[in-house]
Design a binder for these strands. Structure first.
Length: 572
DNA sequence: GGGCGAGGAACGT
DNA sequence: TTCCAACGTTCCTCGCCC
């Protein structure tokens, strides 16, 4: 942004239009696009809110610059030592033994619509509505720079021939399932991150069949095409962070293979813009660029001392990993931490209507929770006001809830405290789960004591059977073998429950003072607490001691890996 | 005064 | 003429408690 930007060319400073140009869009007149979006957005409430958010980011940048300026030579030397040590540790954790594939369907929703209605072929197509489009095909991309993230009416202005098709998620899920059928043939434990994206570990298949990753990638793309009639792009690399970047390089209908060699990775990373990395979005890019002048992944290492001086250890680890091209190579199981439902509608102040909307959302959320046997004890109400300001109000309850009535009742209390109000979105979120046991009412109860654990351990192997080494035979709770501690607590729970029942059967009432557990610890509380503690403390300040590899690994994993199934950044 | 948890905001896809 | 999502996680701040 130049000094004159806000004068003659105000659109240049409108951050909303900063976006990650995709492959095949080099010929687009970016300035025209940026100008049109600015002109059409200007003056709207949405625009005003964007300006407000931008001002906050700018303030943050100023604060960080001031923080930087305060660093003495001694501070910087100290931070450099910490950074260098950490870089060495990350380097030693580099795993080049795995071959990961990231598969990304090309303009998925638009491609499905075109496949089912060939008359759309060759036309610029947007899936969605005038308010927001989900996906556009490549005909649109070559005209207006970006395949999505536009309001429909703006896209229409930029591309007057644009044809709109409403979304049909059942259709997309059907095609997505077809792609997953193919993925299973290459990696039964593949990780789906959305309807159209997945990670596959093809190490074994390459080894067993004595074929190159290039051949497998090609075969996979052909198999997807044969099964669905749709094309995809794939990236092959030693870890998921890099595979994701690689899949974007030869899009659409292409592939890019990054060899499992350190030198090749460092060369690849050296000039890679940071925005290409999953997990670095508009704001992070803006901050790194304007505070530290970091534009490429390589520069993360050059500015490592300053990164250590400004960011939390979790963030530092991520940034340094990006600089080294180190990413996660394990297939890890992730547990959901929250579930939510939200709806946007025309702004209203009508309280009866607002409560009606909230009741509908409570019902949807309750249904979703029932499908996954989830009971939560923290309820968060989200409100987006007419001026696009987002507020959240949360409450933690004395018992785990799931029913629509319970959710609505507690949400009502939260909402009443905010009235009167003019809103355009209401959302409800439940978190702090207890999975699978409707009678686990009191979150304050204790888990098994050490004595009880010793007493019970002898027989617990006989209590819980893990179906497919994965699902609890007694309650259906899903825990993979790697969750050793969580499984232990889960077994303890069922055994205690069984013994308690026996006690009742034998004596007519529960043994006094021995009510060891009434909560199904699918997510072990002790483990969770430790993870939270670790992450929390780390977020506060940067310790002057050098981090241990083990601690940092668990923290970084905590940061993202335990996240939801579909919105997890892919770099870990 | 430090640990800890809750709540709210920010961020990313 | 006017229209800009849905979902999930992490980060940061604040206040309580020992």
């Amino acid at each position: 942004m130049g000094a004159t930007s806000d004068g003659d060319r105000p659109w240049e400073s409108y951050q909303t239009v900063y976006t990650n140009a995709k492959a095949g869009m080099d010929g687009v007149d970016k300035e025209k696009v940026q100008r049109v979006i600015y002109e059409m957005s200007k003056g709207s409430k949405y625009f005003e809110n964007e300006q407000r958010k931008e001002a906050i980011v700018k303030q943050r940048i100023e604060r960080m610059r001031a923080q930087c300026a305060k660093l003495t030579a001694k501070d910087i030397a100290q931070f450099q030592m910490i950074a260098d040590k950490r870089i060495l540790e990350l380097e030693s954790s580099r795993d080049l033994s795995k071959i990961w594939v990231h598969s990304d369907m090309d303009a998925f929703y638009a491609a499905v619509e075109t496949l089912e209605n060939p008359s759309l072929k060759g036309k610029p197509l947007a899936v969605g509505g005038k308010s927001m489009i989900c996906t556009a095909n490549y005909e649109v991309c070559t005209e207006i720079w970006c395949s999505c993230c536009y309001a429909g009416f703006i896209a229409l202005k930029l591309c007057p021939n644009l044809v709109f098709v409403p979304t049909n998620f059942d259709k997309y899920m059907n095609y997505s399932e077809k792609t997953r059928k193919v993925f299973r043939g290459y990696d039964p434990n593949f990780i789906a991150t959305s309807l159209d994206e997945a990670y596959l570990n093809i190490t074994t298949i390459c080894k067993d069949r004595c074929v190159s990753s290039q051949e497998v990638a090609e075969e996979l793309r052909n198999a997807i095409y044969e099964e669905t009639g749709l094309t995809c792009s794939v990236g092959v690399a030693p870890n998921r962070l890099l595979a994701k970047v690689c899949s974007d390089i030869n899009k659409p209908n292409g592939q890019f293979i990054l060899p499992n060699e350190r030198k090749a990775i460092l060369t690849f990373i050296s000039s890679l813009p940071i925005r290409k990395i999953g997990g670095i979005g508009k704001v992070t890019e803006h901050i790194l660029r304007d505070v530290l002048g970091i534009n490429t992944c390589e520069e993360m290492l050059k500015k490592s001392a300053y990164l250590c001086g400004l960011f939390s250890p979790c963030s530092i680890d991520f940034f340094l990993s990006v600089g080294l091209g180190v990413g996660n190579t394990d297939t890890q199981f992730r547990l959901r931490k929250s579930i939510s439902s939200e709806r946007t509608f025309s702004s209203t102040e009508d309280q009866s209507l607002i409560f009606k909307k909230m009741e509908e959302i409570a019902e949807t959320l309750s249904n979703d929770m029932q499908k996954e046997s989830l009971f939560g004890r923290t309820l968060t109400l989200k409100l987006k006001t007419t001026s696009f300001e987002v507020k959240t109000r949360a409450t933690s309850l004395q018992k785990y809830i799931q029913s629509k009535e319970d959710i609505f009742s507690h949400a009502t209390k939260l909402l009443k405290a905010e009235l009167p109000l003019s809103v355009r979105l209401i959302g409800l979120r439940m978190s702090h789960f207890c999975v699978g046991t409707p009678h686990s009412a009191d979150p304050m109860q204790k888990t098994l004591s050490a004595d009880n654990r010793a007493l019970l351990s002898r027989t617990q192997e006989e209590v819980v059977l893990w179906i497919n080494d994965y699902m609890c035979s007694l309650c259906g709770c899903e825990l993979p073998p790697s969750f050793v501690e969580e499984r232990q607590e889960h077994s303890d729970y069922h055994l205690a429950e069984m013994l308690q029942k026996e006690s009742v059967d034998n004596f007519g009432k529960p043994t006094q003072g021995s009510n060891p557990v009434q909560k199904s610890p699918c997510v072990g509380r002790s483990a969770r607490k430790r993870r939270n503690k670790s992450a929390h403390n780390d977020g506060k300040h940067i310790p002057s001691i050098v981090f241990s590899n083990e601690v940092r690994k668990s923290d970084a994993r905590n940061m993202y890996h335990m996240s939801g199934f579909f919105s997890m950044p892919d770099w870990m």
